[in-house]
């Protein structure tokens, strides 16, 4: 069963060459890695509030990996919405000329900021998804983090944009309830522990068609995240949707220059 992993970070090791370790895992599991940099490999710090130049360096490295591993890597463009037009220009350039297939938003600004709306309009124009970090925690949200409800409101303001709620909102039971009535929100299961019944709960509330696989590598291991799906009693057809088909459908709709045709070829 082929897999699309929608949540992979590039910041492993000391150089982009170290990403080869993740490519080996992708080969082992026949996975395509949807990848984004939130810090260049040479920088020790993941800045919560990056400058435009910092984001450009991140995206340059993502693009380098897309070129180096065209069969295994897709890129999402990372920007800080605070920078307004500069962020919009950066996103549009990466989508229109370099084959990026989505937007990654982390926690520079909560996603109820109007500057986020401009970015989602661009995503709608190119029919690419916007992945918004969101993680409800028992101890409270971190700096700039968007709670699941705020992501749901963002999706409701942009009904023609596919919004990916990262980590399914953090707490799967909570996220399942919040996103239940948001048809344009996909829930990515990356990053959490492999809790029994977690993915089952998501499917029970939003359906297998809106749950997508992700790992959060390199912080999380691929097998521990894959086990969230394989450990369920869901039918094989649902597992295939979560692991591959749902995200393949999203990527197939992208109006950005294709880097190569591996995914397209699979679907023909």
């Amino acid at each position: 069963m082929p897999i699309i992993d929608v949540h992979v970070h590039t910041d492993v090791g000391k150089s982009l060459d170290d990403f080869a370790e993740q490519i080996e895992i992708a080969e082992q599991f026949d996975a395509v890695l949807v990848t984004y940099a939130i810090r260049p490999v040479a920088d020790a710090t993941r800045y919560s509030f990056p400058t435009p130049e910092f984001c450009r360096r991140c995206n340059d490295e993502t693009y380098a990996l897309m070129q180096r591993y065209p069969a295994r890597v897709r890129g999402f463009c990372y920007v800080n919405p605070y920078h307004g037009e500069a962020a919009a220009v950066e996103l549009e350039r990466r989508l229109s000329t370099q084959g990026f297939v989505g937007l990654k938003l982390w926690h520079a600004l909560p996603c109820d900021d109007p500057r986020v709306d401009r970015l989602l309009e661009i995503c709608a124009a190119y029919r690419v998804p916007a992945l918004q970090h969101t993680w409800l925690k028992a101890g409270g949200l971190g700096y700039g983090e968007s709670p699941p409800e705020m992501v749901a409101e963002l999706a409701q303001r942009h009904p023609t944009t596919t919004v990916i709620a990262a980590h399914a909102g953090g707490d799967y039971e909570y996220g399942a309830k919040v996103f239940r009535n948001c048809p344009n929100v996909l829930l990515d299961i990356a990053g959490n522990e492999c809790n029994a019944a977690g993915v089952q709960i998501l499917v029970d509330h939003v359906g297998a068609e809106r749950v997508i696989f992700g790992t959060d590598m390199p912080g999380r291991s691929f097998p521990s995240q894959l086990a969230k799906v394989l450990g369920t009693d869901l039918p094989e057809t649902d597992k295939e949707k979560i692991l591959y088909e749902n995200m393949a459908d999203v990527l197939a709709q992208c109006k950005t220059p294709p880097l190569e045709t591996r995914l397209k070829g699979r679907r023909q």
């Binding site: 809790n195 097998p223 086990a227 369920t232």
Partner: peptide
């Protein structure tokens, strides 16, 4: 509390 598959796969698939 956790699925067996996580720990099992992590060992069995470790290259």
């Amino acid at each position: 509390l956790h699925y067996h598959e996580s720990a099992k796969l992590s060992i069995e698939t470790e290259a």
